[in-house]
Write a protein that binds this DNA or RNA. Structure first.
Lengths: 240, 240
DNA sequence: TCTCGGCTACTCGAAATCGAGTATTAGCTT
DNA sequence: AAGCTAATACTCGATTTCGAGTAGCCGAGA
């Protein structure tokens, strides 16, 4: 909620890494990868170096030495400062204790579901399910091998969360596809019929909204007042 | 997967809105809000106008008229082009059919769980649960009122997904807090003891990792080889 | 009649973001 | 001994992103 001087989550990972021991940026990146933290925090070289520079500028980390090996690029080793430790703790406090609004791709897509005919949507949802199942299997495999080597779960709880969320998403999509197929989803009769009219009569989708009763009958009178202008029809704004 | 000429999800919402009827940017923003789409797609004025400009530059939308009301700022009304319709469809196809890697705040926080003592973590998780419960109640309330006015679910499935994900997160956090409290979570004995040592002996957390056997006994020999330098628990399969 | 806050409709620029590119070396094969 | 690939360790700059600012209009109340 507080606006951080350096807001990129990668900066949080940098602070967390340097809290352990001094390192140079590239070393941080390899460490994050070797521990699989790059699956939880987006790592990208461009951002890494600019984030390190920003952290230094704000006094959260400081360069402790610059090594040169032959003609290779310099490696600047950084260490965390006291201010940096505080920032890291404050940040972790926020990440764990305060849920932030987040936006997912699927949610964005679902928001425009009626823009495609039902059958096309079902087809795409099936495709997503297949991909999700593969991803779930992969994560479960990774968990199995971590358990096999007795690597304690405290060190990979974040992966368990990811798995739980993937499973929920898969279940949701499966259920949704099923409800669309069976027309159980309220509104889908209207949706399906609308697309049939568009195809058979050759009219534009937008026209359906202009005179729904004409195309769908009295049952759909609500359409005139409601979508697309949900909640705030022209004449009088509804209380939400 | 394809890199879009305009990648901001808000651009997707703009295309979706203009597919319905021509509008000026500010009108798009109010429409998105009135329909609650701004809960699924991040809306911000700065981005809105730059995204509209970018869409126009790439021929996905075009200005159809410029209105002036008294001395108010001009309102430029845009319409979608044929290329824009295709882009929108392609984008929707991808959003629905292809899961993309996403990063959540909580996942980032969990990745650094051991950086705080167990009791502090439990406290923060409890705090998150409270906040999540409030959010869940709010979403459920919104659903109830949409059902009350018989607003068909097809138009708000995205909100159902959000609810499902929030519930999963809440369940996960509750379970995690419970397992930490009871030391059921593997590794948490080590974790708890480590922090006790840090506090009673006054040594630094990093030192524990240097000679774990000394502080924890033979049981923790695995520590030397494993974390923080986890070998490669996930020998990434290279499919494509 | 005045004024005050809220809505309308954008504008601006500093900062962040990201992927692709670069240059060096180590280790391996042929 | 030459060539090749992979790894190392960054650099660059074109976009993007975003929050804060601005300025006119409108209606309600004092």
């Amino acid at each position: 909620m507080v606006k951080r001087k350096v807001a990129n989550p990668l900066a949080f990972a940098v602070l967390g890494s340097l809290a352990e021991r001094p390192m140079h940026p590239y070393e941080i990146s390899t460490m994050l990868k070797s521990r699989g933290k790059d699956l939880s925090i987006k790592l990208n070289y461009g951002s890494l170096y600019s984030v390190v520079a920003a952290l230094e500028k704000h006094g959260f980390i400081e360069a402790v030495e610059t090594l040169r090996d032959g003609n290779r690029p310099e490696r600047t080793v950084y260490d965390i400062t006291e201010a940096g430790r505080l920032e890291f703790q404050d940040w972790l406090t926020e990440l764990l204790g305060t849920p932030e609004k987040e936006f997912s791709q699927l949610e964005a897509g679902l928001a425009y579901l009626p823009a495609f005919p039902p059958d096309r949507v079902v087809e795409l949802l099936d495709q997503r399910i297949t991909a999700l199942e593969a991803e779930i299997a992969e994560v479960e495999g990774a968990h199995a091998s971590m358990e096999a080597i007795k690597f304690p779960r405290v060190f990979w709880v974040e992966s368990e969360l990811r798995l739980a969320l993937l499973k929920t998403q898969a279940d949701f999509v499966r259920q949704l596809a099923k409800e669309i197929r069976s027309d159980e989803l309220e509104g889908s009769v209207f949706w399906r019929k609308g697309y049939e009219l568009v195809e058979t009569l050759g009219i534009k989708p937008a026209d359906l909204f202009k005179d729904p009763v004409k195309y769908f009958g009295e049952e759909f009178t609500w359409m005139q007042a409601m979508p697309p202008e949900v909640g705030a029809p022209e004449p009088k704004p509804e209380p939400k």
